[in-house]
């Protein structure tokens, strides 16, 4: 964009930094991320092997919480480093978050219905 789209001055600078400079991520970063992913995979399996609903934990939903936290961590690693969002412009950041953010709206609002269905005392049938 020769004349450019001056959305803001800052945006221009970032865009230039990324694409003008052609950021190339060193291989070592990729290898580190992959190692981290492998470690997380092992932790996932290990955490699943423990039944958190039993003592000493006594938290039935802890298993799924841990599993999902690890999955999110994996996804964030992939998005930031493999998909290079870490080195991308703000608009890419925004787009990479948008889908998940909107999905959380869907989850939150539909569940608000299912969760609250039992709150109102039912009239006897």
């Amino acid at each position: 964009m020769a004349q450019g789209v001056p959305v803001t001055e800052i945006n221009e600078e970032i865009a230039h930094d990324v694409h003008g400079g052609r950021h190339i991520v060193p291989v070592s970063v990729y290898l580190k991320v992959f190692t981290a992913l492998m470690v997380l995979l092992v932790i996932t399996l290990a955490a699943a092997a423990i039944d958190m609903s039993k003592p000493p934990f006594n938290m039935p939903s802890l298993n799924i919480i841990i599993a999902m936290t690890i999955a999110v961590a994996k996804a964030v690693l992939i998005v930031l480093y493999f998909m290079e969002v870490r080195y991308s412009s703000r608009i890419t950041w925004l787009f990479s978050i948008a889908g998940f953010a909107w999905l959380s709206i869907m989850f939150a609002f539909i569940f608000s219905d299912y969760v609250s269905r039992g709150w109102l005392p039912q009239a006897p049938r």
């Binding site: 964009m1 694409h19 003008g20 412009s89 608009i91 787009f95 889908g99 989850f107």
Partner: peptide, 28 residues
């Protein structure tokens, strides 16, 4: 396109938008 940089950014952003729609689709 005016120049390669514009084209490059448009194409990259295009794939990201597509992925947003994919997230919503799997989301259901």
């Amino acid at each position: 396109f005016d120049d390669l940089e514009q084209q490059r950014e448009a194409h990259s952003l295009g794939m990201w938008s597509f992925l947003v729609t994919e997230v919503m689709m799997f989301g259901g």
